[in-house]
Structures are given as C-alpha cells and as structure tokens.
C-alpha cells in the first residue's frame, strides 16, 4: 500500500483537481479495497480494479462538491515555497524554476479544462499506464468508449492554444 500510495494519490489529485478531496478519495479507495480484498482478481485486472475503486471514490468526491461553475479548482496549485525549496535543493536556477512552475500550472489548467469523463481516461492511460481494456474495467465502460474518449481528449488538447508548439523537451508559456 505504501508503495502504491504516491502514484495513487497523484492520480487522485489529477482527477479531483483538489489535494484535500484527493486524499480523502485515496483513503476511501484503500479502505474499500481492503474491505473487499476477497473480491480482488488475481490476474492483471487487479490494478484496473483498484483504479476503478479510486475513480469511483473520486467521482463521489466530485459529486459531493458544489456545482462545477462554483467549484474552486485548485489546479494542483503546489505551494510555491515548497516547490521553490524542492527546486533549489535540486540545484536548479531560480528563473528556471519559476519557468517550470508556470509551465506546470499552464498544463494543469489545460488538463482540468477537459470534462471529467475525458480527463479520467487520459490520466489513467498516460499517467497510471493502464491499457484501454483496463481503463474500460476501471470506469465500467466498453473499450470502444475508452478509445473514443481518448481520441476526443487528444483532439481537444491538440486544439488548445496553450499547448501549441509544446514538445517534451520544450516549455510552454503561461497564457
């Protein structure tokens, strides 16, 4: 559990967009996984099952929140002091660290502008590393639905001006 916690927590933050909700969702997910551990499949579907529990917990948190338009999306607003400390510790130059912070915020904003259904499949596919079939199990949809959602998400992200010209080894500028 401890080994999985960091990745699970980060996945929840990416889905919920809110560290507090994410932490509660992870707690709920681990608790449910423990309660129903006898129902855990033994094969590769185990990860999909665990992410399914997590996604459901995140959805519960999202449903509990105020309406979307009133919801304050933290956009993974990492504490500036903490991040500066981390970057400084790593020996990075302050101006470079600031640029990275702006880039991260821009990317997070782009990601969180996606609808929940699209964002979840993108996160599960490109961060959690699940296959389309495992994502289908996790979100209880058909693999074809997962494929179409991934396609739609990639299309929307490609059309987002904030990511124009971005490459893995380059940076984008904040809008």
């Amino acid at each position: 559990m401890r080994a999985r916690y960091a990745r699970t927590y980060r996945t929840a933050v990416l889905i919920c967009g809110n560290p507090a909700d994410a932490e509660e969702a992870v707690q709920d997910a681990f608790l449910r996984a423990w309660r129903f551990r006898d129902a855990l499949p033994d094969d590769s579907r185990r990860d999909a099952w665990l992410y399914r529990v997590l996604v459901n917990a995140c959805y519960s948190k999202l449903r509990q929140e105020v309406p979307r338009r009133e919801r304050e999306r933290v956009r993974i607003s990492v504490d500036a002091d903490l991040r500066d400390a981390q970057l400084t510790d790593a020996g990075e130059q302050p101006d470079r660290a600031a640029e990275r912070a702006l880039t991260a915020d821009a990317l997070a904003a782009t990601l969180h502008d996606l609808p929940d259904g699209l964002r979840v499949v993108v996160i599960l596919r490109y961060y959690a590393g699940l296959s389309e079939r495992e994502i289908a199990i996790a979100i209880r949809r058909r693999p074809g639905t997962v494929k179409s959602r991934l396609h739609e998400a990639r299309r929307r992200l490609a059309a987002d001006a904030r990511l124009a010209g971005y490459r893995p080894d380059t940076e984008v500028t904040a809008p």
Partner: peptide, 22 residues
C-alpha cells in the same frame, strides 16, 4: 489533429511530479 501520445505522457508526468505527496 491529435496531440502526440509521448507529449501527453510527458505533460501529465510533469504535472504529477509537481504534486507533493503527504
């Protein structure tokens, strides 16, 4: 008209890296 999968993976990884874990 689709964002490159490698690009997307890198984007999300960078976002996640900046998320402090309790």
């Amino acid at each position: 008209d689709l964002i490159d999968e490698a690009v997307l993976e890198d984007l999300i990884a960078r976002i996640a890296e900046d998320v402090p874990v309790p």
